[in-house]
Write a protein that binds this DNA or RNA. Structure first.
Lengths: 345, 345
DNA sequence: AGCCGCAGTGTCATCGTTGACTCCCTCATC
DNA sequence: GATGAGGGAGTCAACGATGACACTGCGGCT
């Protein structure tokens, strides 16, 4: 198999006795070419299998038609859905997606930003690790627009699209806590990110609205293992271990809120194993509405996150920002919907 | 905010009264530069915030340090894990990942290949739609190595890394079907892809080994909805609808195999609702070992897929292929492990 | 002293495409 | 028939980096 050289504009031009520039104009739809030669050129380009070289084009035009997508962990179903939505929306607009995974590590995030700078992407969509707030400054300095997704770094002048986590949790807890519910626990991730903070804030707000003393309540943190592998960030086992240690027939919450539906699996087991029942003794409220939630016994009440809308909105916002770098900064928080099922009675 | 021009080699060179070429040599680690000037250059480059332009580099070198990853649906947990593993392995080798999603559509797949050609990626990892077998030829013609993942298109001379689905299913079914099991049903996806074919083949092989008449068995296909959205490809509801229609106390399989664990959720409900029990009346064998499987009631026996290993192996293979285009074609099928739990008795 | 070799630099061309500019010819106009 | 306008095409430079090659000294050798 001969190492076939790639077909260039010149190849097409030489075949037809034209200049490379004319071929370029013809193929990019400029109007300084007669329709007859354009037809010739298009036909010949197709015949030779001409494919434009995007690097050469980027080099001279300064645009790449590539968007960077920085994600902490694609196995997180919310981010997986986000990736799909972002890719689809970018594709529709003619952009390609360069995917960078940070695994929630500082160092990877920095390297990702570096890669994006080398590439000179036209824009970036990113879920920040949030352990440092200045990591993304390099992009701003290079005039590359950044839209933060899900996690907000305030004060950096970046656009943001996320979910109104605090209200979602607050409203859901109030809704789900019927009279008689006094002890409410929250089973959280052990991460220093704004979404966790927002869930805790929503939880507290609910306690206030319900008039429940904060002392009766508890925020538990499931130790986070940095999954270096390609696995789900949340392990039901970890939630189970923590819950099983604390829940006894004499000491248990009336309502348990979990940071995700996978943790709820662990809680179900812990509750069951000490002879209690969901929802009679312990009501459970999940988060994320993963597809299995409706099929648990009892079916899990949870909060559905609009991942698809968030991804689409983020891309739309980014494209508008690329088109007009001077438009005012935007911060959008989409509402999340409570899905009531049997686990809350 | 002034539209800050990007810092180039020339900028660094001019500052120091050197030529651009010397700066290039210093920064790329060539040995024709004195250590003293190299130190000067490195310091100045850092001070100015120099970032190499990858497009310029690609243009002249012909290499991009980018790998294309073509996936049908990132919300499929197996592919999500694959994405993570591929990205991590590529990152470790200094490659970036361009992500293209096909949504199992012909047209998108073709566009993806086109994009990869424009980009001149150094290699491609792809899950093929398999509705046409020649879509990937363009890449081969351009001497871009392709490693097929999970789904194999034979006869195209492409490297392949996948899972030995047929043996996994065959062995698992034989293992799980204790004496007394006569009627075995398989609940499949309705897709014309090789993995589905392999599961069916494994199923048939198991029937033969068990000496069960094929007439007593059934392959059911859950109608596939093309999820244009960013959602899971498998809906428990669909499996439930199909299973609930066919399973009655008088007419039910002794063992039900499902193409994925989400379908098993639907089967659980269908079995339960007609007054039967898992595993006493109907044993259930899932596929994929999704994290909730261990937490179902009863816990689901299923097959664990080595997504992480597959992704890593695929990247390793691709890199070796890039290094040596003439090495013989490789086809690897990783074994999958049966995880026995209560749903099979 | 004269020559060679080599480390350390600079110069030039090149990758493929596009933008700015120039050129030429035709056709309409007076 | 001279003039101008303008469509259609070509020429040249440039984007930023790198490879090939040329050049400059300096030290060591004969």
């Amino acid at each position: 198999m001969a190492r076939s050289q790639r077909v260039t504009l010149r190849d097409v031009a030489d075949r037809l006795g034209l200049s490379a520039n004319t071929v370029s104009r013809a193929l990019t739809g400029k109007d300084q070419v007669s329709e007859s030669t354009r037809a010739l050129i298009v036909a010949e380009a197709k015949r030779l299998g001409y494919v434009p070289n995007s690097h050469a084009r980027s080099l001279v035009s300064g645009r790449t038609m590539v968007v960077g997508l920085v994600i902490t962990n694609p196995s997180n179903p919310f981010y997986a859905a986000l990736i799909s939505a972002v890719e689809r929306q970018c594709r529709a607009a003619g952009y390609s997606v360069l995917l960078l995974v940070t695994e929630d590590s500082d160092e990877n995030e920095e390297r990702a930003v570096q890669q994006l700078l080398r590439f000179g992407v036209d824009g970036v969509l990113g879920v920040a690790t949030q352990s440092r707030s200045d990591v993304w400054d390099g992009l701003s300095e290079a005039n590359i627009p950044v839209v933060q997704i899900s996690r907000d770094i305030p004060g950096r002048g970046l656009d943001f699209v996320g979910i109104d986590v605090e209200s979602a949790i607050a409203d859901a807890v109030v809704r789900v806590a019927r009279p008689g519910v006094r002890r409410i626990w929250l089973l959280e991730e052990d991460l220093r990110v704004s979404t966790v903070a927002a869930r805790i804030a929503g939880f507290r707000r609910a306690l206030d609205e319900l008039g429940v003393a904060h002392e009766q309540s508890l925020v538990l943190k499931v130790p986070t293992r940095r999954t270096s592998g390609a696995s789900l960030p949340w392990r039901p086992d970890d939630a189970y271990a923590l819950a099983a240690n604390l829940i006894t027939p004499d000491n248990h919450p009336d309502l348990m809120i979990t940071a995700n539906d996978y943790f709820a699996l662990g809680v179900y087991r812990a509750v069951r194993e000490c002879g209690l029942a969901v929802p009679e003794d312990v009501r459970v409220l999940g988060y994320g509405d993963h597809p299995f939630a409706a099929y648990l016994q009892p079916a899990l009440t949870t909060i559905r996150l609009p991942a698809d809308e968030a991804g689409t909105a983020a891309v739309d916002l980014l494209l508008r920002r690329i088109a007009d770098p001077d438009r005012p900064r935007t911060s959008t928080r989409l509402p999340a919907e409570l899905i009531e099922r049997r686990s809350t009675g």
